[in-house]
Write a protein that binds this DNA or RNA. Structure first.
Length: 144
DNA sequence: CGTGAGCGG
């Protein structure tokens, strides 16, 4: 009973994150022919790294880990804060032990209230491992 | 100002 509270709050999928980018330009919005379907649209690859956004400015790392530890074993959680001022940026990262733990954490905390604000949990983006010294002066070529 | 989109050390 009373299980429809998470629907109204989290009624904003990854679509409202960027505001309605009304790119309704019927002039420069026309793919030539090859429809590059190799682009990431929504389905993100499952990973133990979870990106949590919508956190309150006073939400700390402990609160995050404690909230996400209820759905899985959280190896490490971190709320991104500014090194200059020290205030939270409003989002954090949660590292689960396994992939299924992360999936349960997302379905369990995505769209829930934390500190009075609705938080969003999803898989974090794959980032380049710090093992490449060959820095190519910025080469933004690889783009799934 | 901690004002509210976003991806860290």
């Amino acid at each position: 009973m009373a299980m429809a509270l998470r629907t109204a709050a989290a009624a904003a999928p990854r679509g409202l994150r960027r505001l309605f980018s009304t790119t309704s330009n019927p002039a420069i919005n026309f793919p030539p022919s090859a429809a590059t379907a190799t682009q990431q649209r929504e389905k993100r690859e499952p990973s133990t790294n979870l990106f949590v956004s919508g956190l309150s400015k006073r939400t700390t790392t402990e609160k995050l880990q404690e909230a996400f530890s209820q759905f899985g074993e959280v190896v490490h959680a971190r709320v991104v804060t500014d090194r200059l001022s020290g205030y939270s940026k409003g989002f954090g990262f949660v590292n689960y032990a396994t992939l299924e733990g992360a999936a349960n954490g997302i379905k369990g905390m995505d769209g829930q209230f934390l500190d009075g604000w609705v938080i969003f949990a999803e898989y974090a983006r794959p980032r380049p491992p710090p093992g490449q010294h060959e820095n190519n002066m910025s080469s933004p070529y690889s783009r799934r």
